Amino acid sequence: MAFALLCSSGLSAALEVGGSLPALNIPSRGELVLTGDKVSYTPWSSATIRSGSPALIFHMAARMSSDATIAPLRTRLESAGYAPGVFQSISVVNLDDALWGTSGMVASELTKNKRAHPEAVLVADDAGRGLAAWNLKSKGVAVILLNAKGEISYLKQGKLSKSDIDTIINKLNSEIANAEQLANN
Rank of each mutant, 00 (worst) to 15 (best):
residue 34 L to V: 13
residue 44 W to E: 05
residue 81 G to Y: 11
residue 39 V to D: 00
residue 171 K to M: 12
residue 106 V to D: 02
residue 145 L to W: 05
residue 160 L to D: 09
residue 17 V to M: 09
residue 43 P to M: 03
residue 121 V to S: 12
residue 147 N to W: 04
residue 121 V to R: 05
residue 78 E to H: 03
residue 160 L to P: 12
residue 123 V to M: 06
residue 12 S to T: 09
residue 16 E to P: 00
residue 22 P to E: 08
residue 14 A to V: 08
residue 122 L to D: 00
residue 110 L to G: 01
residue 152 I to G: 08
residue 24 L to G: 07
residue 44 W to P: 03
residue 11 L to A: 03
residue 13 A to S: 06
residue 48 T to Y: 05
residue 40 S to G: 12
residue 95 L to V: 02
residue 126 D to Q: 07
residue 135 N to I: 09
residue 26 I to R: 01
residue 183 A to P: 11
residue 19 G to V: 02
residue 71 A to G: 13
residue 21 L to E: 03
residue 81 G to H: 11
residue 70 I to F: 13
residue 95 L to M: 14
residue 15 L to F: 10
residue 135 N to A: 15
residue 133 A to N: 09
residue 135 N to T: 12
residue 77 L to Y: 01
residue 39 V to Y: 02
residue 21 L to D: 01
residue 114 K to R: 12
residue 42 T to H: 12
residue 169 I to Y: 03
residue 149 K to N: 14
residue 143 V to E: 08
residue 52 G to F: 12
residue 60 M to H: 10
residue 160 L to Y: 11
residue 149 K to S: 08
residue 6 L to G: 15
residue 110 L to K: 07
residue 181 Q to P: 00
residue 28 S to E: 07
residue 66 S to P: 09
residue 118 P to T: 07
residue 126 D to T: 07
residue 162 K to C: 10
residue 58 F to R: 10
residue 4 A to P: 08
residue 78 E to C: 00
residue 161 S to Y: 09
residue 92 V to I: 15
residue 154 Y to C: 05
residue 128 G to F: 00
residue 60 M to T: 15
residue 13 A to P: 00
residue 74 R to V: 15
residue 59 H to A: 11
residue 170 N to L: 05
residue 112 K to P: 02
residue 110 L to Y: 02
residue 179 A to M: 08
residue 54 P to A: 11
residue 129 R to E: 05
residue 34 L to M: 13
residue 79 S to I: 05
residue 167 T to R: 11
residue 10 G to F: 14
residue 139 K to R: 14
residue 53 S to C: 06
residue 5 L to N: 09
residue 124 A to M: 04
residue 128 G to M: 01
residue 103 S to K: 09
residue 175 E to P: 13
residue 139 K to C: 10
residue 167 T to P: 01
residue 146 L to N: 04
residue 141 V to Q: 01
residue 103 S to N: 00
residue 98 A to L: 01
residue 34 L to Y: 04
residue 65 S to D: 15
residue 122 L to T: 10
residue 61 A to F: 02
residue 185 N to D: 13
residue 155 L to V: 12
residue 120 A to S: 07
residue 92 V to N: 01
residue 182 L to K: 03
residue 63 R to C: 00
residue 37 D to F: 12
residue 112 K to R: 11
residue 160 L to N: 02
residue 152 I to E: 01
residue 118 P to A: 02
residue 117 H to L: 09
residue 104 G to H: 03
residue 139 K to I: 07
residue 182 L to M: 11
residue 79 S to H: 03
residue 44 W to I: 00
residue 56 L to W: 12
residue 115 R to Q: 13
